[in-house]
Amino acid sequence: MNNAPSPTFFTESPEWGWFIVVYFFLGGIAGGLAFLGALLDLFGRQEDRRTSRIAHLIAAPLVVICLLLLVVDLNRPERFWRMMFRLDDDVLQIMFKYWSPISFGAWGVGIFGLVASLLFVGVLAETGTLPRGLAFLRRGGLGTVLTAISGLLGLFTAGYTGILLASTNRPLWADTTLLGLLFLLSGVSAAAAVLMLVGHRRAHPGTVRWLGWMDTTSSLLELAVLAIIALTVWSVVQEVLDGGWGILLIVGTILLGILIPVVLHWRPRLLGSLTVPSAALLVIAGSFVLRTVVVLASERAT
């Protein structure tokens, strides 16, 4: 302990395990989907709506799963409500601490879930699965407002998880202020990959190309952020990513999740019809590995 590279090595692990890893991963994708869906709805063309519908249809169930994961990860899940409300002299009041990421995160993701669900209903109404009268949720001023809010809350959900880690005193998490940005970029990149994987056959070619552009740009920015983290807190990174975590990050996220997909986007004929789904799958897997390494490696650091 005398040679600890940072004061963060004197702390205890909160035992945030697989539930949190999966929550961060799915939250990043859900947030990214809402953001990309909003961009396509608000600034795209009519033919982009095929893809934006898919984005909204996937985002909402993912946020619901995220909220469930948040609850079941608690040691006392039946007291989840105390995260949102408090009893003052037997009067129920809002519990909100803007300076506590776990508090504003619970509210942010909760409201995101609500808005994403409304858009989900709107999309099903548009496609005739639900009564068409409900399609107003996707149209006019209300649709625009809901879509914009969903996009912003999506970005929030994708990024706040990194800020949550930074506002601790744990090794690596609290030693850099870039995890929020890193998770945001990774979430958007993985969401673009999900849309390409699920919808590339039905989507307009222009939409697929735009998704590829978003994926590649986010991935390269993610790589740059990873490099900056490594350079700025190298001694901490060395200590935390010892024992195979570093290799997992380099192979799983940097090589397979970023560099190979970028090459596949650059040379789209390399694997024929398998190029787009292969690149997408690798990006999604890389995003999962990133969160696994960042969360679990620090958890095991002493």
Binding site: L155, T177, L178, V188, L221
Partner: peptide, 29 residues
């Protein structure tokens, strides 16, 4: 240190990243 020390910088960087991604997306479309 207090855990809140990182929130302002971390939030600002994330917000800047969000704006940059939004701008890139809109410009592309």
């Amino acid at each position: 240190q207090l855990p809140s020390r990182n929130i302002p910088t971390s939030s600002t960087l994330s917000a800047l990243g969000a704006v940059a991604l939004g701008a890139l997306g809109v410009v592309g479309l």
